[in-house]
Simulated assay, not measured.
Amino acid sequence: MTQQEENKTGSGTKIKKVRNILLKIIGAIVIAIVLFLGIVYITNVMSSHSEQKRIVPYGQHVSVDGKNMNVLIQGEGEETIVLLPGYGTATPGLDFKLLIDELSPFYKVVAVEPFGYGLSDETEKKRTTENLVSEVHEALQQLNINRYMLMGHSITGIYGIDYVNKYPNEVTAFVGIDSSVATQPGMDIKFPLKTFAFLKKSGLLRLTMKISADPYAGLAFDEKTVEQMKMISNKNMYNDTTLNEMEHISSNFKGAQGLTFPKDLPLLLFVQANNEGVAGWIPLHEGQIKDSVHGKVVTMDGSHYLHHTKFKEIAKNVRVFMKEVK
């Protein structure tokens, strides 16, 4: 064998060794990933089963469309406030607790948990504004609640503007808590629904939530409430019903663009003062009240979930505002 042939043979052997080592490393990485995903999945299944037993019921079930919708009622005031959540607020009845406690000495407060939220059932019915509004209204009808202020967070600005136009003889005022506006930019986005579904079913969502910063740290919720909210969030986040709602977000926003609040409907909007994510956030809300006989925008420093930190101020402003418009 010539020197050149020996060099080629030696080089070939080295290449094979390097290739074998790389294949072993890749194989080990793949096995590690599969084991990791398997552990995450099994942990999620076991944890979900365990948590389901530890969730403490609250509120009451109302039959809507053959399914159970959970509604929390607190307070015995002459006037009624109906509270609706923002998109993805997994447990509305508890998420609104601080605000409900401030309002309930003066009002009858009714926190409705739409299908897919809180302790309500899921549904296969499309999450269009029309269906969502109809279901909430049916729940209130079942409870014989026929006159009320409609108060809601975030996407309730979209569902609410449809609601007050459909049931003008029932709604006495609309109160928005950093509520969405149909013409706000960026709502024509297409969400990666399959990715979110995978994160949910694989258990990676639970893991992500566990290692992420505590969203309730420093807030006034007691420990038991926080524990319940976290467990119900694990149950509801990105379930099939709320994913379907996410799929309809763009069309629901578009459908609301031709609507305005009735001029004679008292309109109180609490708006995040420092929202850097949406251009013209405050002017968008000021535009909603410009033709209202009784319209007011109140800016507040805080996160999108203003009712987590400004619950006392919100409750006080609602009482003052409603006295002024009478």
Rank of each mutant, 00 (worst) to 15 (best):
M1E: 10
K8Q: 11
G10V: 06
S11D: 05
G12S: 06
K14I: 15
I15M: 06
L37C: 11
Y41F: 15
T43L: 08
V45M: 13
S47L: 14
S47C: 01
Q52W: 09
R54Y: 12
D65F: 11
K67F: 15
N68I: 00
M69T: 04
I73E: 01
T80R: 14
V82Q: 07
F115I: 01
E124F: 01
T128D: 10
E130P: 09
E135K: 08
V136W: 09
H137D: 14
A139L: 02
L143N: 12
N144L: 05
M151Q: 14
I155H: 08
Y159V: 09
I161Y: 02
Q184K: 05
K190P: 01
F191Q: 00
P192A: 09
L193T: 06
K194H: 10
T195V: 13
K201Y: 13
K201A: 02
L204T: 08
L205R: 07
T208C: 06
I211E: 13
A217G: 03
D222M: 08
E227I: 03
M246V: 11
G255V: 00
A256T: 00
A256D: 04
P266L: 06
A273E: 13
G277E: 13
Q288S: 05
S292N: 08
H307N: 14
K312L: 06
N317E: 15
V320Q: 13
E324G: 08
K326S: 10
